[in-house]
Design a protein around this nucleic acid. Structure first.
Lengths: 229, 229
DNA sequence: AGAATAGTGTCTATCAGACACTATGCA
DNA sequence: TGCATAGTGTCTGATAGACACTATTCT
């Protein structure tokens, strides 16, 4: 039995974009201009574009995520770390029609965060803080946001994603601030340093020229060394 | 712009089913009876069933995974641990048409593994060993299998999934065998025991009545204690 | 009785958390 | 010159790996 002709769900992408601004974890939200959920906040996203028949011109699901992000927020693919999160396919999650959404999360360096709003018309996109209460979102986007947070919080400890949330060169206290914002807890500065020193010894991080002064005293800056490069 | 009318991809599920038999990690594969890839091995899976219009009768993506598994292998939903893996949506991954596949992995206890073949007509489903070389699979199923393996290998260390691959009651050496099969390395029996003893102290595992003899000497058996129950 | 497996104890290296401490440079 | 922040050193407890050891029971 070949299901070629059967009804198909619409396939969309939704993206949870995080950044850290003012020592605070933030998500990018869009104010919807059309029903359903008109006027409410939602995650950026949209339909995956495909073509009929076996020629299969059209974008991959990942490309769709990059494209929608650029269209809706002005963020270019190069500026992003993008990773697939989960696929949501409950009937009823979109009141219009049966929709399966492939959700992604993205990380943006703080220097690039301000360019987001410039790329779209005034009031469309905004960085919402996550340390305070959360606004209700359209569709099942609350759930998606929650699971994205869980993923990032878990992964920050054993992977390199924290380096995607600091400037290209950064001080240890800037990196510590990212950890604190993501995990929502305070880290002992001395112990954090020691962990960080191991990263240098292992060659994951190297010192960069110059200094930075965020507090009272200037600090050495470092850069993340990519494994393959 | 509403994409209601635009062409849509077909949406499928594919499931990587693991079990441990004879101290060996195995995957459930299906011999395809229809083109494309006729006669080749593939992961069990199939189309997600939806309905037209806003009424949205139809199954969730997760239900589709359970249903396809039961249809193709005879494994009832109750017998399985099922978790979503990743969604594959590259154009060209199915030569017939544009297809987005939501992949899952499932774990089956060894006692239940034999019932798989009984549920289907003779030569359709088989448990393939993973310690030897792998047969080439249809579509991009090699990739899916590889990523499922990676997920299970990573997760077995910090989660409870190992308990889904032993009988309901088990000896420490049975549990160790599962770890060895999954990770592909030998564990020091004494150190493994010590780790295991901590699980008992923490109440995650409790001793069960009776004994089991897999080797020369009989061993105490335990059962996993669910957190919420 | 022999032998393989179940199960215990011990030593060492590593790492995280707590916290006392020194050093620097901006106000 | 004060003081907040950068950065170092040290103690303690938890845990993993290596490995020597005892205990049990099947054949």
């Amino acid at each position: 039995m070949d299901a070629y002709q059967w009804p198909r769900p619409a396939v969309t992408v939704d993206i949870v974009v995080f950044t850290v601004l003012d020592a605070d974890l933030k998500v990018l939200l869009i104010r919807r201009k059309l029903p359903p959920f008109e006027g409410q906040l939602a995650l950026p996203g949209g339909y995956v574009r495909v073509s009929e028949g076996p020629e299969q011109r059209g974008e991959s699901v990942e490309q769709a995520a990059y494209r929608e992000l650029e269209e809706e927020t002005g963020l270019p693919p190069k500026a992003l770390y993008l990773e697939q999160l989960y696929t949501y396919g409950e009937p009823g999650r979109d009141p219009r029609m049966r929709t399966v959404s492939v959700a992604w999360y993205a990380l943006v360096r703080p220097e690039l965060a301000p360019m987001v709003l410039a790329g779209t018309d005034a009031a469309a996109a905004e960085w919402a803080s996550l340390s305070l209460g959360r606004p209700p979102l359209a569709f099942d986007h609350d759930l998606i946001l929650e699971q994205a947070l869980e993923r990032v919080r878990g992964k920050v400890d054993y992977s390199d994603i924290a380096f995607e949330l600091v400037p290209r060169t950064f001080s240890t206290s800037e990196l510590r601030t990212v950890f604190e914002a993501v995990k929502g807890e305070v880290y002992d500065a001395a112990n954090f340093r020691r962990r960080f020193r191991r990263l240098i010894e292992d060659g994951l991080v190297e010192q960069a020229p110059g200094h930075r002064t965020t507090g009272k005293r200037r600090a050495a800056v470092y850069r993340f060394v990519k494994r393959d490069g």
